[in-house]
Structure formats: C-alpha cells, structure tokens
C-alpha cells in the first residue's frame, strides 16, 4: 500500500521533471526564435551589402553598370530633393488608390451581401477586372482619362481593390449561423445585423485583404506611371527611374528602387500593425503572436 503510493508519487515527480525539461527547452527555443527574428535578417542584410560592396571594389565595376552600396546611399542623400518629391507623388497615388480601394471594396462587398442577385450580377466583372493585367488596360485608360492623376489612380485602384472586395465578401458571409438565428429571434434589422454581426466577423478577413492591397496599390501606382510615361508635372518614382535609365544614372535608379522597396515594406508593416491592434483582444491570429 505505502510502497505503491511511494512509487506512484515518485512516478509523478518524475513525470513533472520530464515536463519541466521539455518546457524549459521550449522556452529556450522560443527565446532564440525571438532573438533570431530580428538579428538574423539584419546580419544577412549586412553581409549582402558587404558582399555587394566587395564585388564592386574588387572587380572594379564601373558605377554606370553596378554602383556600390556606398555610392547608392550617397546618391540617395545628394538627390534627396528630387527623389523625395517623386516619393511623395508615388506615395500620394498609392495612398489615394488604397483608400478608394478600401471604400470601393468594402462598399461593394456590403452591397453584395445585401442581395445575392447583385453579387451574381457583378462579381464576374470584378473578376475580369482583376485577371486582366493592368499594363494592358492602362494605355486605354490614359487615352480615355485626360487627367493624368485620375488615370494613375484608376490603374492603381483596379489592381488593389479586388483582394479587399473578395476577402470582405467572404468575411461578411462567414457569420456563425447560430448567431444569425439569434439575431433573427431578437428581431434584428438588416442594418443591426450588418453593423453588430457581419462587419465584426468580416474584420479579420478585411485586414488580410488590406495587407495584400497595400502592396498592390504601390505596384499599381508604379506600373501605371511606367505606362503613362514622361508626364512632366507630378512625376513619381517610376518616372525618375525611367529618366535615370535614359541618362545612364544607375546609382539614382538604385536609390529610387530602394525607396520603392522600403515604401512597400513600410505599408505592409503598418497594415500588419493595424491588424494586430484591432484584433489582439479577441482574434486567434493575434493570440498566437502574443504567446
């Protein structure tokens, strides 16, 4: 009796020991993952820059073929007045296109969920608009739309709005069926159901779409500007890259390229941050990140 009790408690202690070790290993691994998440990309980036620099210096590559990172940085600073203007133009178009994509995408999605028939009628057009490459529509747009800014905006919008539309539509239709019944039992109006049930349900889906659309609206803005070509007034980063290309000003091309890439990363990060802030209290996706 006592012997079996003893062995039982011993086994239990042993079991605790084993679990502890496992937990400790897991905690250690998590710690390293946390550290690695930031340091590894930084180290790799630094090494890549270093290798780039060495390749240029050791092979004596002329700067009109491949400038070193130092020269690119120098150009970035030297040409900042021109580049910052261009960045501002591109950023403005991107942000405007994204805003219109959000308004249009969510608006259409809400319209779609109000009536199946509206969805059936118009969803195919949204798909057609999405699958047609923007470079192939853009020339037409610039023929029909006189205002250059409006044309650019339209192009960027076409690229960006679809993920928001399709994700939000999916979200609005993903409400829990028991909750839907409950709303019906309590005599909720269409507006109440939309406001209190469908929109909150759709929020995580929408934010997923926003993250994609943010990057796409930048791509749309840049591609549209390539197609629109030299416009003189209000020239964005794409125009500066083209212009620098004609003049064989390769360092400036690199500088502009880096600005575009950084802008894309910043947009994505901001969208992710927004998503985290809005969902962290209740949504599974945010919970996993916390722990």
């Amino acid at each position: 009796m006592t012997a079996s009790e003893l062995s039982q408690s011993a086994a239990r202690q042993q079991a605790e020991q084993v679990v502890d070790e496992e937990e400790a290993r897991r905690a250690r691994r998590e710690m390293w993952e946390q550290i690695g998440k930031w340091t590894l990309p930084a180290i790799v980036l630094f090494l890549a820059l270093f290798a780039w620099d060495r390749v240029v210096v050791w092979n004596q590559i002329p700067h009109y073929i491949l400038p070193g990172p130092g020269l690119v940085l120098e150009t970035l600073i030297k040409d900042w007045p021109i580049l910052s203007d261009a960045l501002w133009v591109t950023l403005k178009i991107t942000m405007m296109a994204l805003s219109v994509a959000v308004i249009g995408g969510v608006g259409l999605a809400v319209l779609f969920t109000q009536s199946r028939f509206v969805e059936m009628s118009f969803y195919p057009f949204a798909v057609i608009l999405q699958v047609t490459p923007v470079v192939s529509i853009a020339p037409l747009i610039f023929i029909y739309v006189d205002n250059r800014l409006a044309g650019l905006l339209l192009c960027a919008w076409i690229v960006a709005f679809f993920p928001i539309l399709s994700n939000t539509t999916l979200g609005l239709n993903s409400t829990d069926h028991n909750l839907r019944d409950l709303y019906k039992i309590y005599g909720a109006t269409r507006w109440q159901r939309l406001r209190y049930l469908q929109l909150p349900t759709a929020l995580p889906y929408f934010l997923g779409g926003l993250r994609i659309a943010g990057g796409l609206s930048l791509i749309g803005a840049v591609v549209a500007e390539y197609v629109a070509g030299t416009g003189g007034i209000g020239s964005g980063l794409a125009f500066r890259i083209l212009e620098a290309g004609y003049r064989l000003n390769i360092p400036r091309m690199f500088a502009a390229l880096i600005l575009i890439a950084v802008t894309g990363v910043v947009i994505f990060t901001l969208a992710s941050l927004l998503s985290h802030l809005l969902l962290r209290k209740w949504h599974e996706s945010a919970l996993k990140r916390e722990s």
Partner: peptide
C-alpha cells in the same frame, strides 16, 4: 454562440441592444 469581439457584458447586452 458568443460574439468573440465583444466582452461578456456586451454579449449579454445584445438582446437589449437589438431593441
């Protein structure tokens, strides 16, 4: 069948809120 985005009190408030 609770709304995950709402607090416990807000969930209980729902029948009133819809009225």
């Amino acid at each position: 069948t609770l709304m995950p985005w709402a607090t416990v009190a807000q969930n209980v408030w729902l029948p009133f809120r819809l009225r």
